[in-house]
Design a protein around this nucleic acid. Structure first.
Lengths: 366, 366
DNA sequence: CCACTTTCGCAACGCTGTTGCCAAAGTGCA
DNA sequence: TGCACTTTGGCAACAGCGTTGCGAAAGTGG
């Protein structure tokens, strides 16, 4: 760690507090208290941020007997990021500002099986259309000319992949994507930095950026069952960035066969119960998996999402909550709360954009 | 982050590399490469460390055409830490130097149910006896007078506890310890900093300090079944420092009852199979739990330990390995390796000492 | 109107890691 | 043996970080 990285570290610290404060803003002295830096250091840092156009003064607080505190806020328009949600049959693209607010959105039908060229072209077109300056012609080289404040593009899609290198593995049902270097291919075509991640990780990251503190697990129950783990404010991806394989956790040895080839996976049991219309059993099974996860990682809260959960939120929150409460009674501790996520269908795309915004605020490894 | 913490951060970085190099030592230029700092910065930092007596020059490498590199090494005697392993029927205390090498050891029978006063007195006596200057009389106030380079005492014991506050929860079989502020009580009696943690976490920390890189899970199979998780080089303890409850992971819904009150826990199934003499089934069950953990966290390696494993290492490594290999075939990735830990019975006490040494080398939040 | 409080920037400062430079200590060839 | 060359690593000067001392600005309250 040298002086340059110290400087950007502290700048990111301040920027993150400005982001968390949102529209309300935050005073210099409060920044100093929260960061542990001296007020004078905060003054210098915020002066630089104001010069760069990232922060601005926005009114002042009421006086407490002396000069009133000047409120600073993030300038949301100083930077933008694009989030792309590649689903099996749909493409969803959003543009967000530094605060994470959606500034543009676009949806299109998509066939993931139509070949890489067609998919990449569709993504390129949708991303170009969502940028503030829209032209009929999409420029040949690079999108940064369209919007100089575009920080990059985050892409979220189902299935296992290598987040570090940006290479896909076997996307269920689409074997032709195995080994495809999506990040490289898109970065070349778009001319801006690209980050690739699993859809569940993007959703979890979106929740973390949206104000969910600490450590939590986001369990997504839709056509499959997956999880995004946030530990200490950042997404846990594991050694080969394959963490979060919640659905193929075995909770019934020698149980019914699963599509993955194993037996007794939570996903098989849960989806089976849903198919039979037995939501209570589905929730109980999901709760058993969640309880295992809570015991292993000791997280703060369990968040549920996905179409199946959204269709019957009370049944799932109640069922999963009951299992966790029973566990808490046995261990003598408070039960881990269960909630349904508020975000709608666009949550994954918004979270994908946070893959790009995160490093600006000191989250994620660069 | 200010300049003072920057300084200690970089010093810890260099110290950790010196520690890892062990007796072989490491040159200034190599330190510069590994830390990313300039050679001149490393020269300044190592000069300070040498002034403080923490580092020393130790010979030189062969020349590669110019002035040969001077080798630096950690001075192991510059600091000491004591590790205490409180087990149900035994007390084990070790003193280690900065390199983690055992410099003194002491064992004694112990009855955890004999009351807090008796246990604390036994610990105090054993710790005093393991210090380099041994006296017949144990001093009344503080042990730091006996050894000024004593950095602190780490205590490891079974069962759930609050690592942050150093307070015990329900130790299985000894309800009288519930809520006891062990860290505070011991720190007052010993006059040095005390850190308290679960035995499985201490064992895992010892393995991490012993050269195990990256992320791994240590599964301990003895009278119970627990886990210590190391993620990215540091122990994962979770929000309420209760993480690692591996044994009460449910892998068979509505299975046989467990001592915890739930049904189908890995611990119940595994210990049951061991009791029946069916080691293959025990290993298979353990493997199923390990596979769940690998999928959730995507760790680098699974390490097995504990008396039951040590009694039949091949059966457990083979059985757990087979389950993980089957999982790898399904996902199309390399299997996560399984190994038995080398450390013997004293591993937990040595790991407990690392609770104190860790912060010196920039590990752990203290 | 004035004393007082609080905020916050300018200037000087101490300390960080960095750069420029050179002495020290080897190797290798004539 | 002598000289050119390479490599290491410390001294000195430096740029830049956060900190301290201090004063101007902008309020409140009597």
């Amino acid at each position: 760690m040298n002086l340059l990285s110290l400087r950007s570290h502290n700048a990111a610290l301040v920027l993150d507090l400005l982001r968390t404060a949102g529209g309300e803003g935050i005073s210099r002295l409060e920044l100093a208290e929260r960061t542990g830096l001296t007020p004078q250091a905060v003054s210098k840092i915020t002066a630089r941020l104001r010069e760069d156009g990232l922060a601005a003064e926005a009114g002042r607080r009421a006086s407490t007997g002396g000069k009133p505190r000047t409120v600073l806020r993030l300038v949301p328009e100083a930077g933008h990021a694009v989030g792309v949600h590649l689903d099996r049959d749909e493409l969803r693209v959003v543009r967000v500002d530094l605060l994470g607010a959606v500034r543009g959105e676009r949806r299109a039908a998509l066939d993931l099986g139509a070949g890489s060229e067609a998919v990449l072209a569709a993504v390129r077109q949708a991303v170009a259309r969502v940028l503030p300056v829209q032209r009929d012609e999409v420029p040949r080289q690079g999108l940064s000319g369209l919007d100089p404040s575009l920080l990059g593009v985050g892409v979220a899609l189902p299935g296992p992949l290598d987040h570090g290198r940006g290479v896909l593995h076997r996307v269920t049902g689409f074997p032709e994507w195995d080994g495809f270097p999506l990040r490289e291919a898109l970065a070349e075509r778009l001319g801006v930095p690209v980050v690739v991640d699993k859809d569940t990780n993007a959703a979890a990251l979106g929740l973390a950026a949206g104000g969910e503190r600490g450590s939590f697990a986001y369990l997504h129950l839709g056509t499959g069952l997956g999880a995004g783990l946030v530990i200490g404010g950042s997404v846990h991806r594991g050694a080969r960035t394959g963490a979060g394989e919640f659905g193929h956790q075995v909770i019934q040895l020698d149980g019914p066969p699963c599509t993955c080839g194993d037996r007794g996976c939570v996903e098989a049991l849960c989806l089976g119960a849903v198919a039979r219309g037995d939501l209570d059993q589905a929730a109980r099974v999901l709760g058993a998996g969640a309880a295992n996860l809570v015991g292993l990682l000791d997280i703060d809260v369990v968040l549920l999402g996905g179409r199946t959960v959204a269709a019957a939120p009370d049944a799932f929150v109640g069922g999963v909550g009951a299992v966790l409460e029973a566990r808490a009674r046995r261990t003598g501790q408070d039960a881990v709360p269960v909630r349904v996520t508020a975000g709608g269908d666009g949550a994954v795309a918004v979270g994908a954009a946070q893959l790009v915004l995160g490093p600006v605020f000191g989250r994620g490894g660069g």
